[in-house]
Design a protein around this nucleic acid. Structure first.
Length: 502
RNA sequence: GAGCCGUUAGCUCAGCUGGUUAGAGCAUCUGCCUUUUAAGCAGAGGGUCCCGGGUUCGAUCCCCGGACGGCUCACCA
């Protein structure tokens, strides 16, 4: 390739070199072998022989076959040290000419960082004391034709980490993999917690004709043969409650919700939510359940209910603070609680503090805006906020003594909403009226107002047992328990714009 | 959607006030090396300085526009 001639952007030289090696192997008949069975993981070998001295190992010559990715290679003329990484960790292999066929020796010399190989041999300890596998055969399992990120600094470009998560896992596996293992444990922990309490796991539609159950804008899609507009669900709530009508008494679903909104460190357009519903329970019954679940998950993951999140030390052991939304908002805004029940007065308070008033908001909506503005960011330790205005809770049951509010709570930790639960509204006429009120708000410009769902009201008209339900954002819970500052660090493949065409 | 910041070799990063041929380490290639530990030694190759305009004798650098990303804000969980 002449240097004065500006060649078209062809393949990178590093990749070309590796492809040439691959072509050579193929010419010799190699073709991505399918049958290879390792007998040991790296972690097993370290666990079994980590304390065994070299003389004993030489005596016993324990056989071992390992497989994994080449993550380091130190080659000499007639021998090489090749470090292989599998899901449990790393093990060094030692490949020398006098133990291999000529073809294997040539392969060992041509190995690139990133290749997947299998090595059979015996366990030994090198002169410098490192536990290794002395190879008697080596086979290439898959070729890596692209150069991998540098071994010392790893991959720091966050865009590539999210876009090509496999590279993040290869290059930064020690840091990024544990988060996803923890996420798996959290999901399993939630399931076993609820199943142990007689909850039934169910799956409800993601494709819905009216996406309801939350205040959010949906994604739109289309069914071709039915020629039908569909929306991706924004919450499973209304279907889970139809199941309560049908006779299930305790149900839960862990699933993806889709909300057509902005992206931030705390928002991914698709996110995982746990929702659970219990008949013959009230809102108050759920608080201890949530405490126990989240505290138990922390204990299972970390062995303690104290977790570190950024600068904060969070105590997730039971006994969380409880706070009334209206009282807290009034205290922060320096007015009397009853002022926030009166729309003109509430409006004046908000204007006095320069807090924007949502379109169509009445006293309840304004009180909530004040709460979110002043109080929410200050709730660092786990706090249950109760007494939400009915106006902002179209699916929750009004309080018997004070119909201005509903029997509802939200859980806040490190200034973020983590869970939302309430006694369910099972009065179909009240539900219809609330939906109509939401339609009014929609007319006034609130495009996240809840749509009318006659089918759901019709279900309620058959009688839904008194019940309470709760939703927990699994991604945010994982962030909290894994000390992750961005939701993209706990979602394997976060949504990104398509990469610019290079 | 708005504001601020960023984008230089495959990766991690330098690059002065605008100056001639844009550097380093790792990685790669060639040679030597049968117990290394970020192996070593000798040599070599590798760049659309994110893209498009503008200013200038001259732009990686200054100005304008755009793409992508990060952070903050707004909305939600």
């Amino acid at each position: 390739m002449s240097s004065e001639q500006r060649h078209a952007p062809t393949e990178d030289d590093l990749t070309a070199t590796r492809r040439a090696k691959l072509a050579e192997l193929r010419a010799q008949g190699w073709s991505y072998p399918n049958h290879f069975t390792p007998t040991k993981h790296a972690g097993e070998l370290h666990a079994a022989f980590g304390e065994t001295d070299g003389a004993q190992l030489d005596e016993a010559k324990h056989p071992a076959t390992v497989a994994g990715r080449v993550v380091a290679k130190r080659a000499f003329g007639q021998a090489s040290f090749v470090v292989v990484e599998d899901v449990t960790g790393r093990i060094q292999t030692y490949l020398r000419r006098d133990q291999l066929t000529p073809e294997e020796h040539a392969l060992a010399k041509s190995l690139d960082l990133g290749d997947l190989i299998g090595v059979a041999g015996w366990v030994f300890r090198t002169r410098t004391g490192e536990l290794s596998v002395h190879g008697t055969s080596v086979v290439l399992l898959a070729k890596c034709v692209h150069p991998l990120p540098e071994k010392w600094h790893g991959l720091t470009d966050v865009e590539i980490r999210y876009r090509k998560r496999y590279l993040d896992l290869i290059a930064n596996g020690a840091e990024s993999r544990p988060v996803f293992l923890s996420r798996s444990k959290i999901l399993a922990g939630i399931r076993s917690f609820l199943v142990a309490r007689d909850y039934v796991e169910v799956e409800t539609p993601i494709l819905q004709s009216i996406a309801g159950g939350a205040a959010a804008r949906p994604f739109l899609t289309h069914h071709n043969t039915l020629d039908m507009e569909l929306q991706l669900r924004i919450a499973p709530e209304l279907f889970l409650k139809r199941l309560l009508v049908g006779g299930f008494e305790r149900v839960f679903e862990i699933g993806r919700n889709f909300r057509n909104e902005g992206i931030s460190t705390q928002h991914n357009p698709e996110f995982t939510m746990l929702e659970f519903y219990q008949a013959y329970a009230t809102c108050d019954d759920l608080l201890p359940l949530v405490e126990e679940m989240i505290g138990g998950l922390a204990l299972a993951l970390h062995g303690t209910t104290k977790v570190k999140y950024g600068e904060h030390d969070i105590e997730l052991g039971a006994g969380w603070t409880r706070l009334s939304l209206i009282d807290a908002a009034a205290a922060a805004a320096g007015c009397a609680p009853h002022d926030l029940r009166n729309e003109p007065k509430a409006r004046a308070v908000a204007q006095q503090h320069g807090v924007p008033i949502p379109p169509g908001a009445g006293a309840g909506g304004i009180a909530t805006a004040l709460f979110e503005h002043f109080v929410e960011p200050t709730l660092i330790q786990p706090t249950f906020v109760t007494g939400f205005p009915a106006e902002v809770s179209p699916l929750a049951r009004a309080n018997d003594d004070d119909p201005f509010v509903v029997d509802r709570f939200e859980l806040y930790v490190v200034g973020r909403e983590l869970a939302n639960g309430f006694s369910e509204l099972n009065d179909p006429d009240d539900q219809r009226a609330r939906f109509l009120k939401q339609l009014e708000n929609r007319g006034q410009g609130d495009d996240e107002a809840h749509p009318m769902d006659e089918d759901y009201v019709h279900a309620l008209e058959h009688g839904m047992p008194p019940a309470a339900g709760c939703g927990i954002g699994v991604d945010r819970l994982t962030m909290l328990l894994c000390n992750a500052q961005s939701i993209r660090d706990v979602v394997l493949f976060p949504l990104l714009r398509p990469a610019a065409k290079a």
